[in-house]
Write a protein that binds this DNA or RNA. Structure first.
Lengths: 211, 211
DNA sequence: GTTGATACAAACTTAAGTGTAGGTATAATC
DNA sequence: GATTATACCTACACTTAAGTTTGTATCAAC
């Protein structure tokens, strides 16, 4: 067996990416070898070296494939004219955590991001992506602050840090292999968490009773 | 040169641990080789293999060395009779974050814990340690809850998750190589964060004005 | 229908790191 | 003060995974 049609080649490329995604998020990037990925996709390493330059390039391709237009749209609507940026951010966080807790591809991608920090070749690219998200979040919070939606004791920087840290911690909590002693009802917790964070960041007058 | 006195041997053991700590936290556990550690300590790998079984055993020894009696005491005082567990927890968190932000050994140790998850041989040991801390924190928060110190919309589980996640996120934020776009005044932020978290978790009547 | 480019497979090379066996000088022990 | 256990060092064998080269069947284009 040898040369295939272009469509078929593209299909094996996607298969390789699928296998890489699965194995990377299952066993970790460093512990996964190219041979394992190839075997999982029923190919040989030759196929990988044909489609990608090396392991780092493979990872890079995974990121490229994972960048969704949805995220872009989300951030844009958050800073639109009529929107309430703080409420949007809280809602987005809630949705994010809920999906992170399922077996969605989002979770796999976040695990990848989490691990890829160990791979120096990708650190810059990752930093870039993080910085973009960070500045979006910062923008939203700044808008909220300018409208007096933030608590007087909470600067934009602190609110930013709070969200940033919570997100990172969530990813760690959900992705990490850590066995938590405490059995948790995630849905309930996420709901209560959002309410709590609202109390922490919102201006006193803007707090609503639980919906 | 050959055999040394017992005291000297113990000293080289400590030197090896020091070098391992430095290199592990500088370049990561996986990217650091035993040869590099030995060279940094002006020894050879032979010395490492004499004092430790392998890389995992070395890491394990690092953890053993890092377990401070201070932490134990801190958790004990938190759940003592007269103490206000919630306030103690908030204070401890504040202190923790401040020290994490310095170049203390605590930071190095936390970075190790963070990375060692990738090393499967240590995952169990780490889980154990984490679980201990978790249960301490959970205990403190439960006590606070029983005294009515928690906000009615905030269950013990949610408060626990909030602290847990914040801690993990902080470690990630401080330890990670991530370049943050936003320049931050850490001291101020930590102060405001604690106040914010207090608003999130504390029962409404117990909130104090800023001290 | 021949020819060149494609899409891999398979075998080989290279490099890095771990593990180990053997040597050796010296502290400890008696 | 002879012996033994200790605390390493040196060198080499083994393993593992990345990277490279070569081979080859087939698609595509003329």
């Amino acid at each position: 067996m040898a040369r295939k049609t272009k469509a078929e080649a593209e299909k094996t490329r996607q298969l390789l990416l699928d296998s890489a995604m699965r194995l990377f998020s299952e066993k970790g990037v460093v512990k996964t070898t190219l041979a394992q990925i190839a075997a999982d996709a029923q190919m040989t390493r030759g196929a990988i070296y044909w489609h990608f330059e090396d392991k780092a390039d493979l990872l890079h391709a995974l990121f490229e494939r994972s960048i969704t237009p949805e995220a872009e749209r989300l951030w844009r609507t958050m800073t639109e004219e009529g929107a309430d940026p703080l409420e949007c951010l809280l809602k987005a966080s809630h949705a994010f955590w809920l999906e992170m807790n399922s077996e969605s591809t989002l979770k796999q991608v976040m695990m990848l991001y989490n691990q890829a920090e160990q791979v120096p070749e990708l650190a810059d690219k990752l930093d870039e992506l993080h910085c973009q998200e960070d500045s979006h979040m910062y923008q939203a919070l700044k808008m909220a602050s300018e409208r007096g939606a933030l608590h007087p004791d909470m600067s934009v920087e602190t609110a930013f840090t709070l969200f940033h840290t919570l997100h990172a911690g969530m990813v760690q909590l959900v992705c990490g292999a850590r066995k938590c002693t405490v059995e948790l009802d995630k849905e309930k917790i996420f709901r209560e968490l959002i309410l709590g964070i609202e109390r922490a960041v919102s201006a006193p007058g803007r707090l609503k009773s639980p919906r």
